[in-house]
Amino acid sequence: MVAVSIDGLTKTFGRKRALNGVSLEIPAGEMVALIGASGSGKSTLIRHIAGLERGDAGCIAIHGREIQSAGRLSGEARDMRRSIGVIFQQFNLVDRLPVITNVLVGFLGQINRLRGTLGFFSRNEKHIAMRALHRVGICEQARQRASTLSGGQQQRAAIARALVQGARLMLADEPIASLDPASARRVMEILAGINKEDGMTVVVSLHQVEYARRYCPRTIAMKDGAVVYDGPSVALDTAFLKELYGEASDELILPDAPVSDQPRERPVVAIGSGAPALATA
C-alpha cells in the first residue's frame, strides 16, 4: 500500500518557485526523512501533503485517495485530514487550553460534530487521550495549560494529539528545530517508536542530517524546491552532502546532533582587536 504518492507537484509563491515538479512515493510503514537547507521546500511540501496548502499543478494522493490535484483540494480533504497527523515546529497547541483538551481535539474529526463542538468527550475518549499522554511521557501534566510545558513536552503533547486522531500517516514539519538536543532525541525516539510499534508511516523534515541517518532508513533530500536525492540515509556522508549542497551543507551538519559527541566550538565574535571576545551561543 502506498501512503503518499506525489506526481509533478509545483508551487510558486510570488516569483519564487517553492516546489518544482516534485514526484515521489512513500510506501506505508516507512520512516522517511526530508532534509534540505532552509528555503529548500521541505515545509512547503509537508503542508501540501497535509492539504493545508494548494499547489499550482500536480497531484497528491494519500492511501490511494486524492487529497489535491491541479490546485484544487478534494471535497474530502477535511475528512482525509483525520488520517493524517501533523506536528509542527512551533507545536501549534492552543496555549490557554489544558494539555488534555489539546489532545482531545484529536477526536474532533471522528466523533459526532455537535458533541465535539460542545466539548462533550466521553469517558472512553478521555481514557484514550490519557493513554496517549502516558505513551509520550507527560500524563502528569494533563491538567496544566499547554503554555506551561517546556518545548519538548509541548511537542510530545502534539504527538499525543496526532495519536488520538487515529492517524495512519504522521507528517512532522521540523519537529525538533526549536528543541534542545535532549528533547530533540526524545521526540525523535517517540516518532521512531510509533513507526515501529504501530506501523505508522512517518515523514519528518529535518535540518540535521545526523538525525536522519540515525532514525530514518530513507532520506529524501531537497534543494530549491526539487528532490535531489532519494535513497538510503547511510549514503549521506559529509562528502556527498558537500557535493549536493556546496557551501549550504554546513547548515545541515550541526554539532549537537546525537552521533557526534565531540565538544562543540562556539562562534566567536570580536569587537575591535583589544576588546574581549564575545561568545554567542
Binding site: 497535509a50 493545508l52 512551533q90 487550553l97 474532533l108 474529526g109 465535539g116 463542538t117 486522531q165
Partner: peptide, 28 residues
C-alpha cells in the same frame, strides 16, 4: 494563526476551529 492550523489538521470543522483554536486565544 498556527494553533488554529493545528486544530484544522486534525480534521475539525470550521466551527470547531473557532471554538477550540480562536476563542481560547481571545478569551482574556
Amino acid at each position: 494563526p498556527y494553533p488554529v492550523e493545528g486544530i484544522r489538521a486534525t480534521g475539525a470543522s470550521k466551527l470547531q476551529e473557532i471554538i477550540y483554536g480562536i476563542i481560547p486565544q481571545v478569551a482574556p
